[in-house]
């Protein structure tokens, strides 16, 4: 499979009280053509920050190092004009909160047309016609009327469909979806996930799906990367991860979600709390909460192979040998 997006050693540092702290450290992953990669983790693990870094949308006073290779170019070093051509055109993004990510003072049609006019040089009337087509594509009824309405006139689910229409406008190669269904009710979430699955399959789009919901991952993704405290602790094909989770954090996550079917057993929580940026400590970042922590965990583990394309950042798997970079 051809690699569309390749992230190498991405490290992101934030300036907090006059010192730099690593929010994301040494993150590497790749997404193939037509592939959906799930980036899972709890709040503060760095998954959203990672996605913003790919789009170069991080605030100033942020240090970013590493590489983000897209079509042979490193997105972290290309000039801003070139980046503007890529954003919304080659790589587009869907955010969690559909109310705040649409501009309340512009009509739906105007907002969708904007990127068409900008990137495709369409005339206003052609862009409008295209917008209506896009609204139909994402399953919005009465598209001809909705195109002239304002965001506040739509429900949450409809707004998220509009967001998807905007992201799809220029038929991007890569779609980044940051918790696209978290703010929605389950029955609406089912609609949106269904829509996203169909659209990405039809257009062979590569998708980076950021979520905290393992259920969504199981349903949508081909491969998964699990993040904890700014690092990817485990990644591999989705079936592999769910059948044979290797890293103690992944195992912990799976054990602490209540099941919808089968026997009801007491949950096994992961004790303690996620460390804050300022006191990350040295060695394995999960060690303080890990039920299997050992002496060696005071040292920083590498990513080790535990199966085909399945890597775990845990000393338990060190015998398998360090993965070649």
């Amino acid at each position: 499979m051809e690699k569309v997006l390749e992230v190498r050693d991405l490290t992101i540092e934030f300036l907090i009280e006059e010192r730099y702290h690593q929010a994301v450290q040494g993150v590497s992953f790749e997404i193939g053509e037509g592939e959906t990669l799930g980036l899972v983790g709890e709040s503060g693990c760095g998954k959203s920050v990672t996605s913003l870094a790919l789009m170069r949308l991080l605030p100033v006073h942020t240090k970013v190092s590493g590489q983000v290779r897209f079509r042979g170019e490193d997105l972290l070093t290309v000039g801003e004009p070139k980046m503007r051509q890529i954003r919304g055109n080659e790589i587009s993004m869907i955010f969690q909160e559909p109310m705040t990510s649409l501009n309340p003072v512009h009509r739906i049609g105007t907002q969708i047309s904007e990127s068409l006019i900008l990137h495709r040089n369409l005339s206003a009337s052609k862009a409008r016609a295209q917008s209506i087509e896009l609204l139909k594509l994402v399953g919005i009824p009465r598209a001809e009327q909705i195109v002239d309405e304002y965001p506040h006139q739509l429900s949450g689910g409809m707004r998220q469909r509009v967001m998807i229409a905007m992201a799809m406008a220029c038929q991007p190669t890569v779609l980044i979806a940051d918790e696209p269904t978290t703010a929605l009710d389950v029955t609406i979430q089912a609609q949106i996930l269904d829509l996203m699955r169909n659209l990405t399959a039809q257009n062979r789009m590569s998708t980076l799906l950021i979520t905290h919901d393992l259920g969504v991952v199981a349903e949508m993704c081909d491969r998964v990367a699990v993040m904890y405290a700014g690092q990817i602790v485990e990644q591999g094909p989705v079936r592999e991860i769910f059948r044979h989770p290797s890293h103690p954090y992944t195992i912990g996550l799976m054990n602490c979600i209540p099941k919808i079917a089968g026997e009801r057993t007491r949950l096994v929580p992961i004790e303690g709390n996620v460390p804050s940026l300022q006191n990350m400590g040295t060695g394995c970042r999960f060690a303080p909460r890990c039920p299997q922590a050992m002496e060696v965990c005071k040292n920083e583990p590498q990513e080790y192979d535990v199966g085909t394309g399945h890597k775990s950042r845990c000393w338990l798997h060190a015998e398998a040998g360090v993965t070649s970079r």
């Binding site: 389950v186 029955t187 609406i188 089912a190 609609q191 919901d213 199981a218 349903e219 919808i260």
Partner: peptide, 25 residues
């Protein structure tokens, strides 16, 4: 039934007979 079927199950091999409800609340 629809509500139960809509829950994403954390199991990639789970059999799903999803009832997708049309429209909004």
């Amino acid at each position: 039934k629809a509500l139960l079927s809509a829950i994403p199950v954390p199991d990639p091999d789970a059999k799903r007979e999803r009832i997708i409800l049309q429209g909004d609340l």
